[in-house]
Design a protein around this nucleic acid. Structure first.
Lengths: 213, 213
DNA sequence: CTTCTTTTCACGCTTTTGTGTGATTGAAAC
DNA sequence: GTTTCAATCACACAAAAGCGTGAAAAGAAG
């Protein structure tokens, strides 16, 4: 197995030194450098070409998320493991959507940390199980949002609403459906009643929000 | 520490027996029962009241995802760990959105399995790191869709657009912002130009689609 | 066979939107 | 010190949307 080259960003000197010693004392790991801030990630990462980057989230100056984003601008491939003290919901979310490869708590035992870095290096996405739980919860909640309240619209009314959402005028809808404009008008009046709105734009907004699109 | 009560659904007799023996031979675990299909989950789960359920995905008859859904109908609390041979993308996705508490590969080492069950029982969401990687990828791709093209709207124009999306009339916006209706009109004209639309409802639709809301 | 709902259409009238064509002010950029 | 731009306002006119009120045909449900 090849040596895994690691770059470290961590402001706390004790923790930084601790990780360095741990990794340098482990066969198969090589700490290229350890920085106390990520003000120069754009130069450092391409210069060192690490396999895995350990990035602390809570750093003064440029924080870890910002650092991650800047790394991704110059290198979308390198594995970045986020380190943090708290499994704060918002940070987890931001890190993930910015392309983090894993998210682990600092209290992670040394043996675990080694294991996690190996997993990250080989394409996995290691994360503390409490963080995984959060990720799943977010995921489930995203999918729950996809509601469809329907509002008892008739087939024809749904058709009309579709055109409305597309920004068509009454006249255009009438010609599309081969009916009189007054008919369209009457459909729309009924739609507004059922959706409890009283203008086109409100209906469109409601259609988007409630996924009747 | 309290004993963790486990219920097993797994069609393969060897694997089923293997897990039973492993868990029953481990202090702190108690296998309540092991079934070869999940045709009767609705009765079995409430009857046994397990802490953790191990659910194989690939089962004849009712598959694991379906089983999970049926379990969730009668018990949204019990921890369900999905077991599978392959880390198939679609299954992972379906399991997660149906409320699985973890997703692990069958090739997981016994010691790891024990650990995972403990994590699930204590509220974590254990998953093989390759599966976690998939989850992150899905997550990132979902959020990539959340684009924000901005369209160079000025601060004031964004304000106006917000009210527009809320279904306010020009007059209402004017009074809200303490400006003349003609000013609102002029802002809206500029907004339409920047968004390349020419009606309120199109603007609202675009605002929703491109998340300028 | 009646009742209900959906779909269709009509007329009149008011309000709201959309468009064109300006102008003034103040702040920031060059 | 001029230029650029955002934000403000004005007036006029045409098009579209919204509202009330009413009604006929067609099909399903009872």
């Amino acid at each position: 197995m090849q040596t895994i080259k690691v770059l470290i960003y961590e402001d706390n000197p004790q923790y930084r030194e601790g990780i360095c010693m741990l990794l340098n004392g482990t066969v198969g790991f090589d700490v290229l450098a350890a920085y106390k801030n990520c003000s120069n990630v754009e130069e450092e990462v391409p210069a060192w070409k690490p396999d895995v980057i350990l990035m602390d989230i809570d750093m003064p100056g440029t924080n870890g998320i910002e650092g991650l984003i800047r790394i991704r601008n110059v290198n979308p491939e390198v594995k970045v493991l986020m380190l943090t003290v708290f499994d704060d919901n918002q940070n987890v979310f931001n890190a993930i959507k910015s392309g983090a490869n894993g998210y682990i708590l600092k209290k992670t035992a040394p043996a675990k940390l080694i294991e996690y870095i190996q997993e990250a290096s080989s394409g996995g996405a290691p994360m503390t199980s409490s963080i995984a739980a959060q990720v799943l919860k977010m995921f489930a909640s995203i999918n729950k949002e996809v509601r469809n309240t329907d509002y008892d619209l008739s087939a024809r009314e749904k058709e009309v609403l579709h055109f409305l959402v597309k920004g068509f005028s009454y006249k255009m809808i009438a010609s599309k459906l081969f009916i009189a404009m007054d008919t369209v008008r009457s459909h729309i009046k009924n739609i507004y009643e059922k959706l409890h709105v009283n203008s086109k734009s409100e209906a469109v907004a409601k259609a988007f929000r409630d996924n009747i699109i």
